[in-house]
Design a protein around this nucleic acid. Structure first.
Lengths: 254, 254
DNA sequence: GCAAAAGTGTTGGAAATACACCCATGT
DNA sequence: ACATGGGTGTATTTCCAACACTTTTGC
């Protein structure tokens, strides 16, 4: 987790290295005062090369040098938790208007070496191609979720929880489309689900399922630059999804 | 939310009124120092008279007099979030060894009038008959979830989120049994599901469903003191449930 | 014997699964 | 022409939903 000085104004130089120093000082102060710090950590998923990726940086803290870290920061005094998460995303990646949802709070006593810090984990899903990263401080880049090197603090645990959350959530909510381009082929969609859930699905049944939901809109366009017959491109009709009434009864099963 | 002086030792006089004073003082201090406080609020559900109930107290704070409040407290410096939740339950109700799960963090800037406090909501489910309340400070008692009077702070929102969480969770995890006696009839179980989900279910299909899961154990005993044919009493086989391998694939549906 | 809830099976429809061939494109 | 994935339909099975009568007990 990277921490910076809490302030009420969003930095004018988002992502600049200078905004992320003095971390240790602040934490030492918190610790000596016996105060619990509160931070937000963002688990940002992307999908590329048919693999689920996560966005990590190199930790600012010496002791955790060469370990990878989620994108985090202390929560400012006058911002909501959600706002803090959006701010961190914006500062670190330059990205805005993305899917973001709170997943869980982590507050084990020893989870941060410098001070007592409770963190709220957020999940974000972005399309890697569409949102090219503009800020690359702290070696920000994408990592495969399946083959992760050692991570700082308890960030591995946080990531694991968020990944499991994603596996469950993607089956009951159409958040996966955030990982794809606005227009996508059914093959891409299926690859996404297969990669995240680590299963093989039947192509025909997968199509039937999604078409029967009636939420995919044929754009009339086709794939290009593929060395085979191009597939149709669809987009997800979010309005129509919103209007569907949610069923609160799913069926008991455990 | 009721707050008390953070300390590293669990109070020796759990639930005593004296442990819950000086709240305003602490919060004023936090506020003047520009520090974000962190608390835990417990939403404790019970089931009685075929209705879902929630355990509330009268708020300590003047401004919120006569409004009902969840059971909460500031998190101590040297306790995990989960520990804090268990401590609050123990202090306020004398109860231990109960189901408890984190639901969501709430951190809107203005949610608490005295200071900036981020709270982590926990859900707990207890059997009202089995765990008779020993501590009744602050007018602690059970309220119907469906007909709630005005609540303090944002506690109504927290309760709503937790209730929706419960409706979803009870269908995919056997936590509902915590609300029933160790031995229960199928009628009681069905009443529980019908009350929480606010649906009517077919009795035969309900039985079929639960028996087919193979997790109910016939105790050989029967209901007593019922003015009709007594039903068989079952208990939930939690060991067997634990051994079942979880399926990560539920089927896409949204 | 009557009221009240326990206990029990079958059937039809819907949804999930399994499975194989022809089509369009780039090379 | 061939390699690659796109696109499609059907048969089977499984699961869910609807539905009614007999049994046991307390009063």
């Amino acid at each position: 987790m990277s921490l910076k000085i809490p302030s009420d104004t969003v930095s004018e130089t988002p992502g600049s290295a200078s905004a992320h120093k003095n971390v240790t000082t602040i934490l030492k102060q918190l610790e000596s005062d016996g105060i619990i710090g509160i931070s937000v950590d963002c688990v940002i998923f992307g999908f590329d090369d048919n693999e689920l990726k996560v966005l990590l940086i190199k930790s600012d803290m010496e002791r955790y040098d060469n370990k990878w870290s989620l994108l985090g920061d202390l929560v400012n005094n006058h911002e909501d938790l959600d706002q803090a998460a959006y701010r961190i995303l914006k500062e670190r990646t330059g990205l805005d208007d993305v899917y973001l949802e709170q997943v869980k709070g982590f507050g084990a006593v020893g989870r941060h070496p410098a001070a007592r810090v409770v963190t709220i984990a957020y999940c974000s899903l972005i399309n890697i191609e569409h949102h090219k990263l503009k800020i690359l401080d702290n070696e920000l880049h994408w990592h495969r979720v399946t083959t992760l090197s050692e991570m700082a603090f308890d960030h591995r645990q946080i990531l694991d929880v968020c990944y499991e959350w994603l596996q469950k959530r993607i089956q009951e909510h159409p958040l996966g489309f955030s990982l794809l381009p606005k227009q996508f082929s059914l093959r891409e969609l299926q690859n996404l689900y297969e990669a995240i859930l680590d299963v093989k699905l039947d192509r025909r049944n997968f199509r039937k399922k999604f078409f029967s939901m009636g939420l995919l809109e044929d754009t009339g366009e086709l794939e290009s630059d593929v060395p085979h017959r191009p597939g149709k491109l669809y987009k997800f009709n979010y309005d129509k999804y919103q209007k569907k009434e949610r069923k609160k009864w799913f069926g008991i099963d455990f």
